[in-house]
Each structure stands twice: as C-alpha cells, then as structure tokens.
Amino acid sequence: MNHGPYDWGRPSDDTYGAYNHQIAAANNSQFPKMNTQQPIVTGTSVIAVKYQDGIVLAADNLGSYGSLARFSDIERLLPVGDSTIVGISGDISDLQQIERILDDLQVQDSYDMEKPNLKPEHVHEYLSRVFYNRRSKMDPLWNSTIVAGLSSTNELVLKYADLLGVTYSSPAIATGFGAHLAIPLLRRKVETEEDASKLTEEEAVELVRNCMKVLFYRDARSIDKYSLAVISQSRKKIDIHKGLRCEDMKWEFAKHIRGYGAPQL
C-alpha cells in the first residue's frame, strides 16, 4: 500500500501496477447506482447450540477494520424484549441499524401498554423480511444473524437469517468463520434435536466456551473476550454473561509459525 496522501489506501504500484483512477473517479454513467459492496467494520462468528432446557449463544466483542482489531468492546448479542436474543455477525454499522430497527419494533409493540407480544419467531420473521427486502433492492444489510429465544408457547426457537434473506433452523448454528470451525465441534455433541435433549446446561456452556477458544486460536478476526447468553425454558429467563475470557489456552506452538510475534532471523 502506498502511504502518500494521494495514494492512501490504494494497492502499491510495485505489486499491482498503476492504479486505475477511473475506478475512484467512476461517475453515474459508468455506475448508474452503487450500493454497499463490502462490509467495513466487522464482527466475526456467532455460535449457538440447543440443550435440554434451552439455548446457549456466544459472540466475541471485537470490531475488526479489515485485519485491524479496531474495537474491542462491541456487544453483538442483543436482547429484544424479555424472551429473545439476536446474535449478529458482519458489518457493525448495519448491526447498529438493526439494533435501531428492533428498538423501534419494541416501542411499537408496547404502545398499547399491554402484555408484550414480540416473540423470537416474530422477530426472526421480521428480520428475514428486512434482509430479503434490502437484498432485493441490491442494497443489503451485510450481516448473518442467529435469533434465539422462547416462543409464545414457551418452546425453544433457534433460527438463522442472513443478508440474502436465507433462513433455516437447526439445533446447532454458527455464522461466519464459525460455520467452518465451530459447526463440526458443535455437531459432535448435538447433531439432532434428540442429542440436544440429552445435553445439560453445564455441558452446553462448556461446549460453546470450547468453540470460542478454538475460534480464537484459528480465526484471525477474533478476540479472546466474548459474551455468552443462556436461555432457560424452565426458568423462563435469559442471562447474558459479559466480558468472558478464553481460558486454559496453550500458545507454545505459536513460536513455530512464520511471521508470528517478533521477526525471526
């Protein structure tokens, strides 16, 4: 990258050849309209797994600016009402936009000052419609999300929705890098609903915490500080534990990695 004021942020000429200034100077005749092409500040994986009495979710607190670990206090597990958690990965500014949309939704739901009736199945449907609507305008909100909670009939809801409007449900879900790294680990314990019904809360928390550690080992856009939410059917309650740390890590292997730490001569 060239660091001169006029070339800041552009690929270096040595490596990539001269920069084509038409790209930056592109006008409306070349691009009639251009919307979001990539996320800017990003949050990495959200992971979630069902257990016999509920759901455990986790997401770390990092906001990455490219490869730069820019913000270390981003909260990506959002409570919506008292029976829903939305875990969001992807663009952080879009996360903040979703946060506002969901806040407005809660205000609208409580206008009548009656019993709140915004349940996870409703939040998930709404969110997926917002995503699909935006992607159909070719102006997506750049996120993948997990919606978890207790439904109107106090049943467990664990569903996925992303920037394309794709949705699905599964007893173990992970977004982003976690879809590669955490899913196999989660499915080793919880492949089916039946497996989930055998897993205790302690085991589920242990499983998720282990996945967060593995993700911190292998995902360069992650941090060792994260939030973890426990949804419990019997207690009809959601607890969010903030500022948790990856524990019992071993980094001895790291000295064998080229490019890690101080330059090796």
Binding site: D112, N117, K119, E121, H122, H124, E125, Y126, R129, S152
Partner: peptide, 11 residues
C-alpha cells in the same frame, strides 16, 4: 402473517 409470522391481533 408475512412480516411477523403471527395472526393479526384483533385489537
């Protein structure tokens, strides 16, 4: 039904 996956409240 489409936006919220729930029947319209009568109120």
């Amino acid at each position: 039904k489409m936006v919220f996956n729930r029947p319209l409240s009568i109120t």
